[in-house]
């Protein structure tokens, strides 16, 4: 997920046509003028086709081959890579990690972001300051987050173990267990993205007419009741949108677990792969194993997972809309 993903608002599917310019003498305009619009939009399409669309589609072609980096034989193997993947325990371990961390990171994040958006949707003093302080983790680079949190989760001298030792918990070796690695990596994702989602939800919240809350107040509804009866229903489409964006980012999780394991077995996600994600497995196959065909298969399967989850979300969206 990235900052500019935020344009992925689902309601943009069919943009309203802009007001048509007054009828012009286009038939008489010289060729240069008539081609100007195409010249203006073509850089985007050319670059996107070369560096975005082509690699993505070509991934499928590569996945049908036993393809290594440096020329040589590249025999066509059909779906052999897919069959191998289906029986690949390391891949399924990585898939379990990816989905586990995704759920562990996304659910608390969205709950907190929704509540926080509600808190920020009041007339505050120093409003910009509070919003900035919520967003500052998102501005911090993902590499920095990975490095800082890894130190905080260090076993012998980390801040987290020191804090838990104050309440009598023994030092935890966060990297070594699956559950603890999931928690630590999820904490990184949560810290970095909660504020961003808060602001998206806040923006949606500000579109809710204040009068709804006033009417509810006059009917004697308390803050909690207002939250459940007004805020949550009104925000549902936005929550779905934020979930889609979080899914696209979460399924491709890479940097946080990589740096969490910095130093040894980083791409492998620890000694027994306890925090290896699918994206890490993909990179490991491609760049350490030189198995480009197999890595492309992993990528294409990941693409399928994203498409599937997005489709489910579109269905969800439609149901919400029809319910309104």
């Amino acid at each position: 997920m990235s900052l500019t993903d935020l344009g992925r608002a689902p309601r943009t599917a069919a943009p309203a046509p802009p007001p048509a310019p007054p009828p012009s003498r286009s038939r008489r305009r010289p060729w240069r003028e008539r081609s100007a619009p195409y010249a203006f939009v073509s850089p985007f399409f050319v670059v996107f086709a070369i560096f975005g669309l082509f690699p993505l589609l070509f991934t499928f072609w590569v996945s049908l081959h036993d393809w290594s980096l440096l020329g040589g034989e590249r025999p066509f193997v059909g779906f052999a890579n897919y069959r191998e993947l289906a029986a690949d325990g390391v891949f399924w371990n990585a898939m379990a990690n990816t989905l586990g961390i995704f759920v562990l990171a996304t659910v608390p994040q969205l709950v907190v972001a929704t509540v926080l958006a509600q808190v920020l949707n009041t007339s505050l003093r120093a409003m910009t300051f509070w919003r900035m302080s919520v967003l500052v983790p998102t501005v911090t680079s993902v590499a920095a987050v990975g490095i800082i949190f890894s130190l905080m989760f260090a076993r012998d001298f980390g801040l987290v173990n020191w804090l838990t030792s104050l309440v009598g918990v023994d030092a935890i070796s966060w990297q070594d267990h699956r559950w603890s690695a999931w928690v630590a990596v999820s904490a990184m994702v949560d810290w970095r993205w909660t504020g961003y989602n808060t602001l998206i939800l806040l923006a949606a919240l500000q579109a809710v007419p204040r009068e709804l809350y006033e009417a509810a107040r006059m009917d004697g509804a308390g803050a909690w009741r207002q939250f459940w009866s007004i805020t949550v229903p009104m925000l549902r489409p936005t929550i779905v949108f934020v979930t889609v964006v979080a899914t696209i980012g979460g399924v491709q999780l890479f940097t946080e677990p990589l740096l969490f394991n910095a130093g040894s077995n980083d791409l492998a996600g620890g000694t027994t792969g306890q925090s290896q994600t699918v994206a890490m497995y993909l990179v490991q196959q491609a760049f350490t194993g030189q198995r480009f065909g197999y890595a492309a298969t992993v990528a294409w399967v990941l693409f399928g997972v994203i498409a599937l989850v997005s489709a489910v979300n579109v269905l969800l969206l439609r149901r919400i809309r029809s319910a309104e």
Partner: peptide
């Protein structure tokens, strides 16, 4: 602001590409 053939179709393509996780094409890239 400009009127040209294929405008709305091309715009739809732009919007659609925002949903495509092109990072997954990193091997061929």
């Amino acid at each position: 602001k400009l009127r040209f053939r294929g405008r709305s179709g091309l715009l739809l393509v732009v919007v659609a590409t925002m949903m495509v996780p092109v990072q997954l094409g990193l091997v061929p890239l």
